[in-house]
Amino acid sequence: MKRGNLARAIRAFPWSGKLGLALVLFWITIALVGRLIAPYPSGAFVSYEVFAGASGKFWFGSDFLGRDVLSRLLVGAQFTVGLSAVAVTIAVALGTGFALTAAVGPRWLDELLSRAMDTLISIPSKIFALVLVAAFGSSILLLTLIVSITYVPGNFRIARSLAVGLARLDYVEVARARGEGRPYIALVEILPNMIRPLFADIGLRFVFIVLLLSGLSFLGLGLQPPDADLGSLVRENVNGLGEGALAILVPALAIASLTVGVNLLIDAATQGKVQ
């Protein structure tokens, strides 16, 4: 029954939504199996020519050190999609968790959380990252944490306004009058009614995180060589820009298609559900 609904909803998408869905599914697949289907090890120097064009051997040519662009892209996509997914999960879990606590908790706790989030949101994300990386050195763990924490307050704001609105509805009052505890009220009565609008937010934050991670990598603060995400691929091949090398165009296109795809999908999914 649920499945049928989903299929029907997808069929009702406009073409842009279907394109978005296809792009998202494509990138999820790449993230899952990319490492397995990469023709060469991602760090191996396989070509004598740098910034080579497309050929039967190297579909997307070679990079500034003569490595296979396709292989690096397949592995890099896994970092980008995987890290972003983990980071968005942490950000939303924390943001929405705090929001629910604020909505069902005592007023002072709500005030405290809201003020703390306001403070956090006022710190520019790149500078925040810069300071932390300078202090602790770049690592995947730190990177994930930085990126997640950056997006907690934004999610908190949206989730809190949703939750506070829902917490005043009669069905929540009924649950309160029954003697239900706060966790039950937050998780069973309120949370399920926030899911749809939250999904839109999750999608958007995912896009922001992909862009932030790529941006950080481009600045050299992100993943450190030999690991590389899509952003690092763009950065390390930046010298190829003048000759229009595939090594820089392909990862840039990859970032674009991933973020555009997620956006199109969110638009379609949230619009169809207004009524």
Partner: peptide
């Protein structure tokens, strides 16, 4: 209040549209 006391008094609200959780 004790759970037993709560059980003995139940409240039914005016507006059934918002008194029932649409997610359940």
């Amino acid at each position: 209040r004790t759970r037993e006391q709560l059980r003995r008094v139940q409240i039914v609200f005016q507006n059934a549209d918002v008194a029932l959780n649409p997610a359940h």
